[in-house]
């Protein structure tokens, strides 16, 4: 026997449809398309106002070190764990230099803390570290784990099915040699 009991969401859908129908037929009002969002996976969004350095082009002096960070992420699916990877010059070394996770917040909240990374050019295995060299630092925040199989393209960047992501990147200019 088929149950005719409606769930809360179905009741709302039904109500909206009825109101739309009444409005449309009775008052001939153009009703915009109403789409009730199904429970799908919402992407994490890096809070760009918390990103440092703020400029997309960054100079590195003789210390050969630079801190990069984002201090906040919005994730509407509050139970999702977020996976973070920091890449440096991905085109040269298809790898990442930091792997991190941001757990769901202790108190129910759609915002949560971020992550940070220190680029240390003197102690990195990059090919070109001479004065004037350009580097790319990129961070990807995903709401599903990165795939374990690193041969799936793009290597080390592929995310498990259904995942969403956000990212930021910086161009780093070396003012000094960092050998």
């Amino acid at each position: 026997m088929v149950s005719c009991r409606l769930t809360g969401r179905e009741k709302i859908k039904y109500l909206i449809a009825m109101v739309a129908l009444i409005l449309n037929t009775t008052y001939c009002v153009d009703v915009p398309e109403i789409r009730v969002l199904e429970a799908s996976n919402r992407p994490p969004v890096i809070d760009k106002s918390t990103v440092t350095p703020t400029s997309p082009v960054v100079k590195v002096d003789s210390t050969c070190k630079k801190d990069f960070s984002f201090m906040g992420v919005t994730e509407l699916d509050i139970e999702d764990t977020l996976y973070v990877r920091w890449y440096v010059d991905y085109e040269y070394i298809k790898n990442y230099q930091k792997s991190s996770v941001i757990p769901s917040p202790a108190k129910k909240s759609i915002t949560r803390g971020g992550d940070k990374f220190t680029l240390d050019l003197k102690n990195s295995i990059l090919l070109n570290k001479s004065r004037g060299s350009l580097h790319t630092v990129e961070v990807i925040v995903s709401d599903r784990p990165f795939t374990a199989d690193s041969t799936i393209p793009p290597p080390f960047k592929a995310i498990e099915e259904g995942g969403n992501y956000d990212y930021i990147s910086w161009t780093v200019v070396q003012l000094e040699d960092c050998y």
Binding site: S99, P103, F117, S124, I125
Partner: peptide, 8 residues
């Protein structure tokens, strides 16, 4: 070689 990793 510098590496950073975070686990839960």
């Amino acid at each position: 070689i510098k590496l950073f990793t975070t686990i839960l």
